[in-house]
Design a protein around this nucleic acid. Structure first.
Lengths: 344, 344
DNA sequence: ATGAAAGCGCTAACAT
DNA sequence: ATGTTAGCGCTTTCAT
């Protein structure tokens, strides 16, 4: 007699009793298996409606072994790059009748592992993971080997046999760099994420390659790799931009860095303007003055492709592992076209 | 003999057999129930490790009736307002050992209903919902009455007995309007979401109230309500801003509208500058020139509070239904302080 | 401290 | 077209 008595949820037996049929017939109707007479279907549906029956998917999952659910793991689900990607995954999942579990790893491999465990305990049919830097292959490879569908996005985990969808980071960063060179710049700075982060390293490599291809000497004094959320970045940036023989252009290695940089540049507006190309597009890049030239990734496309790969595997496809590179696209908006000394 | 033979996932019986104990003892160890000798614990843990056992939560859920999962339903999980809110919910859920199912309603009440069904079939312990405009109370009230924990955020559903976390939309919009009046503006335009959207109507009411309190006559020619994603908004906006006796200031009713407006203003820069206050903060508002004055909501706080309310209910709390209003905060950045005619 | 048996609500397999 | 039976892997209950 304590609390408001919550009416117990009706089960298929309750519906069966109400409709005067057997349990299995209710199951047939609920799952639209067919081979049930029109009258019976109507009677069962009426009983379902009247009792407010909803199938208990835990029981279904226990029996069938499928959760109709996939798990997403990102560093931070509120990062616009990942939330856009997640949305695209959701649309594909919906078409496959699947739901989405989402969790943020905070870039912590240990926590990431906890999430993988929690997801697999729940029997997710597959995982789409942007792995945290430093993720060991062990657990994931075990899952992959046990037949769990896994697709990596944005970053791979070497040692895990799983499909992977990556941006062409080297090519994109090289294109950004070449673009600045073509606009007359010779001293181009690069600000990227922590060197442990796969994309940061690849993008730095693309930058260096393009410099060399342009006959320019990479200069350590123009490169800084640090988490864009770190403290003291104003000093880090200032140390590069205010040195003797300073850069006349710069590249930021991801959207967090672009935004951090724009904030810095606004706070230090007395400095001579620098040409600026960001890796990854971001909202309002086109509205700023000058509008920000970017190498746009295609997060929605990456999400869609990753999800399609995943559901192919969930469906039992045995094709060889794929690694798909999505080419980024240079979007010229103004900030990257300020002429450098060689054109001045 | 088709495909790579996927090793069957080990169960508790397998672990029990390997460790030479009974099924129940394994269960005790896995769930840290205690009353197991140190040696036995060690033996069981070794077997778990060796076999790579993970508890099957579908079976657990079937028996216990709890999924350790909550469901989130938003219009669009990639909207920064909602993705920030979702992230805050996630942090609270994590502390309660719960995972997050997320789905986007696209503002469609029918699809929203499908999602609620899918979530409840899966036995979620609770729902956090930003309901689509036009949501009927029926299904949700049935769930609430059946004891499912529900918390509404951003918008209520009248007729459903559930806790609700809302912004003080009227107060916030009134503050934005009063701020512009105090800066000398007399003709202030308002661009908000569709009139079916709860927040749009409340914010419009706050705007009108503040005008009247300032002794100003609300003027229909200065107000437009439309989805910020609609086509042809440039004409809608132009129709207001380019009329005879045009406004000298404007308010946008949500972050999507703010961004839409900034894009329009940039494309029509020849027009005399208008004072501008946005409802809801957005990234880079501080970096634009002029920086955009906003009435900032607190999506993370709203998410945290909603989640805390939810888990209180999941835990069985029987307190009366609460409706919490979170006061927004005016952040003065420049765009809202351009002096109007009364101060010129 | 440990174990045996029953059963959660559903679907698979097999009748009829 | 419909029904019966067994059992998915776990937790609950009750012994010992």
């Amino acid at each position: 007699m304590s609390g408001p008595s919550t009416p117990a949820r009706p089960t298929m037996s309750d519906v069966a009793a109400a409709a005067g049929v057997s349990l299995k017939t209710v199951s047939r109707v609920v799952n639209a298996e067919g081979y049930v007479s029109t009258d019976t279907v109507a009677a069962v549906k009426a009983a379902i409606e009247q009792l407010g029956f909803r199938r208990n998917d835990a029981a279904r999952q226990l029996r069938q072994g499928t959760a109709a659910t996939i798990g997403l793991i990102f560093e931070d689900q509120s990062d616009p790059f990942y939330s856009t990607l997640a949305r695209a995954v959701e649309d594909v999942a919906l078409a496959h009748g699947s739901l989405l579990l989402i969790a943020s790893s905070n870039g912590d491999p240990a926590h990431s592992q906890t999430i993988v465990d929690a997801f697999t305990s729940r029997g997710v049919d597959g995982l789409i993971v942007a792995p945290a830097a430093g993720t060991e292959p062990g657990l994931l490879q075990r899952e992959a080997a046990a037949g769990r569908a896994i697709v990596f996005v944005d970053r791979p985990v070497p040692g895990v046999d799983a499909d992977t969808v990556l941006a062409d980071n080297v090519g994109g960063a090289a294109a950004a760099t070449a673009h600045l060179v073509a606009n007359g710049h010779r001293r181009i700075a690069f600000f990227g994420d922590d060197p442990g982060v796969f994309t940061a390293t690849e993008r730095l490599a693309g930058y260096s390659r393009a410099l060399r291809e342009a006959g320019l000497e990479p200069d350590d004094r123009l490169v800084r790799l640090a988490a864009p959320t770190a403290d003291g970045l104003d000093d880090v940036i200032g140390g590069v931009l205010d040195q003797t023989d300073p850069p006349t252009a710069l590249i930021t290695g991801n959207n967090r860095w672009s935004i951090r940089m724009l904030r810095h540049l606004k706070a230090h507006a007395s400095r001579a303007p620098l040409a600026f190309v960001g890796f990854d597009d971001f909202e309002l890049a086109d509205v700023l003055d000058p509008a920000v030239t970017v190498v746009a990734q295609a997060p929605a496309e990456m999400g869609r492709i990753a999800a399609e790969l995943l559901f192919r595997r969930v469906g039992g496809a045995e094709e060889p592992i794929e690694c798909i590179r999505i080419p980024p696209r240079l979007i010229v908006r103004g900030s990257g076209e300020l002429p450098g000394p060689a054109l001045a």
